[in-house]
Design a binder for these strands. Structure first.
Length: 362
DNA sequence: AACCCGGGGGG
DNA sequence: CCCCCAGGGTT
């Protein structure tokens, strides 16, 4: 199969099978850009409602640039990889200040923006401006390693560069927008990680993995490291007027710019109650009494997992200071939903607002 | 090159 | 339980 046949078969299949998506067919480069940031390491179904909400809140790059970071993070709450939201917001300001609010059309220029790497630069310039830059994402890696029978580790930079070269060689310069999206669509719905449906594939006749029955072993990925597990104690300090203390995480930390109930890792030989009291002493400079466990929950982050023990606390002495956070604030229970929280803390806020399901309760 | 960074869905 | 997902930034 030559490059023309490849492209013809692929695009023909795409015309007949492409799924409907809110950003598909969209001409506004800003919306295409937002969709591509949201889709980084995120499934279409998960991103879709966030995209609709985000665009309704920030219809243009100017609206986004003028928004407060807290509003942007609130719109991103629950989607994960929050640096995406911070970088998107930052890049919007750059566009308004230095680019008259317009995304640059060239790969070399657009990749300078925060949060735009090789994938997103190729995606936006091809889809919004019809530039022949080939995208390489997880889908394309799977499709092309199988198609060309690449058996090396797909985690390595060398293999990714090989795949990028294949994609660049294959891209249809007359229709790069559809070519790129068709490659990803094919990887997503036909050339799936397990049980690929090769009988549906428009390029099966040229596929090495299909012909040699190697779709189970290609792409090859070296083993991932095991995720460590931590036990975390967090304290919910309730003042006499009923307000609760929340803290704003440092800008450059994990989950930066989101709010939380202060706490930290349990040490060896330490009761979890002591963990909570020690952590709050360290982070707020106060003495507290952890008097009642509110709930426990398990949560998995990208590189570790936790069991979180949440304790209700009373202030014994001292005035809380933001020693390890940007800011601390006393808030009513019904005000908690105004603030962006990471998932594990979000579960706590819902319990505290009486909206918890209770299945994780102790 | 290695590591860090969320959360959800599917097998 | 594991893997994967329209990756990017930092060191």
């Amino acid at each position: 199969m030559n490059n023309n046949d490849f492209s013809h078969h692929l695009l023909s299949w795409y015309q007949d099978h492409k799924r409907q998506m809110p950003w598909r067919g969209e001409a506004d480069p800003y919306k295409i850009w937002v969709s591509e940031i949201m889709l980084q390491q995120t499934r279409v179904d998960q991103a879709t409602p966030y995209f609709q909400n985000f665009i309704s809140l920030f219809p243009t790059v100017f609206d986004l640039a003028n928004a407060e970071q807290q509003e942007v993070l609130k719109a991103w709450e629950g989607l994960g990889y929050y640096s995406r939201a911070r970088n998107l917001h930052s890049a919007a300001k750059t566009l308004v200040q230095d680019y008259n609010g317009k995304l640059p059309e060239s790969y070399d220029e657009i990749i300078k923006l925060k949060g735009i790497g090789p994938y997103t630069a190729a995606a936006v310039t091809s889809i919004a401006f019809n530039k022949p830059n080939a995208v390489v994402d997880g889908n394309v890696i799977r499709v092309l390693t199988r198609y060309f029978g690449v058996e090396e580790d797909v985690r390595s930079t060398k293999t990714k560069n090989r795949v990028q070269d294949f994609a660049t060689e294959l891209i249809d310069e007359d229709n790069p927008a559809d070519f790129n999206q068709a490659m990803m669509e094919l990887g997503s719905v036909v050339c799936k990680p397990t049980n690929p449906e090769c009988y549906k594939c428009p390029i099966q006749s040229g596929c090495v993995a299909a012909k040699t029955a190697k779709t189970d072993t290609i792409p090859y990925k070296s083993p991932a490291k095991k995720k460590p597990h931590h036990t975390i104690g967090v304290g919910i300090i309730e003042a006499e007027d009923g307000k609760l203390l929340i803290a704003l995480r440092p800008e450059d930390a994990m989950l930066g710019g989101l709010w939380e109930f202060p706490g930290g890792k349990q040490k060896e030989g330490e009761e979890i109650q002591e963990t909570v009291e020690r952590e709050l002493a360290e982070e707020l400079g106060v003495e507290v009494k952890a008097y009642k466990e509110l709930m426990r929950l398990k949560h998995t982050y990208s590189h570790f997992s936790i069991t979180m023990h949440a304790w209700m606390c009373k202030l014994v002495s001292g005035k809380p200071q933001p020693k390890s956070s940007q800011e601390i604030r006393w808030v009513e229970r019904n005000e908690l939903e105004r603030y962006p929280f990471p998932k594990a803390n979000k579960v706590l806020t819902e319990r505290l607002m009486g909206k918890g399901q209770g299945e994780l309760g102790i």
